[in-house]
Computed example of a mutant assay.
Amino acid sequence: MPVESMIASYPANEKVMKSEKELSFAKYSGAGNDFILIDNRSPHELNWPLIAKQLCHRKEGIGADGLILLELSDRASFRLRFFNSDGSEAEMCGNGARTAVHFAASLGIQTKNFYTLQTKERILEARLKDQGIEISLGEVLDIQWHEEIELNGQPWRFAYLNTGVPHVVHFASDIESFPLLAIGSMIRHHEAFKPNGTNFNVVKLHHTHIEVRTFERGVEDETLACGTGVAASALAASVLHGLKSPIQVHVKSGDILEVNFTLHHKKPQKLTLLGPVKRLFDGVFTLSV
């Protein structure tokens, strides 16, 4: 059922409100990654980090992994700002960007099924396809295929790469019983990745596909999918274990994402992410300003 109205936040001891502002939103899922999307093309000068924390709260808000603002751009079809559920602003979000393309189309931003997206650091491309929405992820940075740190007094081996945001990729034979929250939190805050931290993915290899679970920085928990993490995991599976593009990636939600790329001397190129997007509901929330 659509959310009709919601109070974002009022201090318990506040008796008089100066004013109220209503904002429309759409709630989306990108392969299980859920987001609140707001049309901010007529900019609202608000405390977006605080609003993101309030709206994304699973018990006292709408509930989401992140908040996405769609804004005007003089360099692309539109500009995106990504806020994690803890209020931090992210450089990029793969599944979030895919949901934003669907949202843009619903707002009447039509470019014959082809869009360009301005993120904090990149200009990306996106296409609407029968199988879902596909986005390019741009250049892969900071690639380290064979890394090792000490964790709980033991050596810990992994791949590290930035597919828009930083990711650690670790392979395991059993990812269902893998202690993702404990290990993910330790890796995310490890000295080796300070000051900004990293996301963590644990991957199970199959002959024709991979399975991935992800602990996301900024959400500080496991998410049902992570687009940039899926891409990082697929690249590591190809370079380190010989899987060929395109790679099907099974995520926690049960959905399947497809990662396409080419490799040149182990350097990824033409990296794209394709998968399903669902518009869950629309609503309006009210906040005091």
Rank of each mutant, 00 (worst) to 15 (best):
13 N>C: 05
134 E>P: 01
30 G>C: 05
43 P>V: 14
86 D>A: 03
143 I>Y: 11
253 S>W: 07
154 Q>V: 04
120 K>Y: 02
24 S>R: 12
220 E>A: 04
268 P>I: 00
199 N>L: 10
155 P>N: 04
172 A>T: 00
106 S>M: 12
244 K>E: 09
266 K>M: 04
57 H>E: 13
84 N>H: 05
283 G>T: 10
78 F>S: 11
7 I>Q: 14
96 G>D: 09
28 Y>G: 01
166 P>C: 09
237 A>V: 08
192 A>W: 13
139 E>N: 11
229 G>T: 04
231 A>L: 08
52 A>N: 10
254 G>D: 04
197 G>E: 09
135 I>R: 00
126 A>V: 12
37 L>Y: 05
231 A>P: 02
223 T>Q: 14
244 K>N: 13
38 I>M: 10
42 S>Y: 04
205 L>G: 08
59 K>P: 00
2 P>S: 12
79 R>T: 03
31 A>E: 02
256 I>V: 15
180 L>M: 11
225 A>M: 02
106 S>H: 06
20 E>V: 14
29 S>Y: 06
237 A>S: 15
7 I>W: 12
243 L>H: 10
83 F>I: 09
155 P>Q: 00
248 Q>S: 15
193 F>H: 08
64 A>C: 06
218 G>F: 08
260 N>Y: 03
221 D>N: 15
204 K>N: 10
153 G>Q: 07
165 V>D: 05
111 T>R: 09
172 A>H: 14
174 D>I: 02
37 L>D: 02
186 M>N: 10
184 G>C: 10
81 R>K: 14
171 F>N: 07
137 L>T: 14
270 K>W: 01
157 R>V: 05
100 A>W: 07
280 L>P: 03
35 F>R: 01
9 S>P: 00
177 S>P: 00
74 D>Y: 02
146 H>Q: 15
132 G>M: 05
124 L>V: 02
31 A>K: 03
160 Y>N: 12
109 I>R: 01
3 V>M: 14
169 V>E: 07
98 R>W: 07
144 Q>A: 12
288 S>D: 10
97 A>G: 07
18 K>M: 08
71 E>L: 06
279 R>W: 05
17 M>G: 14
99 T>Y: 01
136 S>I: 02
117 L>P: 04
158 F>P: 01
289 V>E: 12
233 S>V: 07
25 F>H: 06
141 L>I: 09
277 V>R: 05
257 L>Y: 01
124 L>G: 03
74 D>Q: 10
21 K>A: 12
212 V>A: 04
130 D>E: 15
142 D>S: 15
169 V>K: 06
94 G>Y: 07
145 W>K: 10
169 V>D: 01
277 V>T: 12
115 Y>V: 01
256 I>A: 02
231 A>N: 04
228 T>L: 03
